[in-house]
Amino acid sequence: MRFSDFIKNCERNEVSLPEAILRAEMEETGVPKEKLKDSIAKVFEIMMKEVESKYGKKQRTLTGMTGFNGYIMSQHIPRMIGEFNHIAMVAALSMAESNAAMGRIVACPTAGACGVIPGVFFALKKVKNASQKELLVDFIVAGGIGWIISRNATLSGAEGGCQAEIGAAAAMAAGALTYHFSGDAEKCGHAAALTLKSMMGLVCDPVGGFVEVPCVKRNGIATQIAIGAAEMALGGVGSVIPFDEVVDAMRRVGRSLPESLRETGRGGIAVTPTARKIVEKVKSNNI
């Protein structure tokens, strides 16, 4: 299954993108559409409840390397970005920090990248007053884009680097945002492609192997890339390379990443002098 198949189904059967996604899943698993929708709705409700309760809060993370960034940013009055981007950023930081603090999260698409999607959805809710019903449909679009990446590449940092986790999360978020404002399936593909191209090659280099640095802030920043890409797609800027081909390219890039840049904590920023010092300290605290 490819994104172009979704588009074809939309055109042939005159259905919306989320409808085409649900139908495709139903055909594969045999689970009735309404049941599937209910299960997705449950996950979605938990995600929104969690982001509502953790937004801008200080949290005690396992290593103490992060846990205060969502709070700090919530206190900051932005100089450049608007309210929408600000809320998305704070929400993403807060959820990623909740993850590091053993809070409840929705691994959408993974635990390390769990901030990006609630980030943009919380902004849609708070700033655009989007209803839960509208948001659920957008969430299915996000799921469909992630599904295409999981089928044709990977969603695992250990396999494909961080482009496969936070990169994928951002592509999913960009598609969902674009759908929310346009309902245009093709534009969703462009937004996802633009995002993934901007994050291609992103390595997975967690300090000490812990899901905190750079993961937490990367979640926050990824919301901005997703919003930027969605805005471009909405404005009519297309990706020259179609989304499906970008996903193929991402798979190949992931394969050519050395193991040191795939979640082992043995490359990238994880081996900088400061990172080494921090890890020593964390470990001597018996953490």
Binding site: I21, T29, A100, M102, G103, R104, A111, L155, E212
Partner: peptide, 21 residues
């Protein structure tokens, strides 16, 4: 991987391999 695996699961963090597994 099904759609529900992509948008989930609901879990306590931080790591699907080191915590959830």
């Amino acid at each position: 991987m099904s759609l529900l695996d992509v948008v989930g699961p609901v879990m306590v963090g931080p790591s699907s391999s080191h915590t959830l597994g």
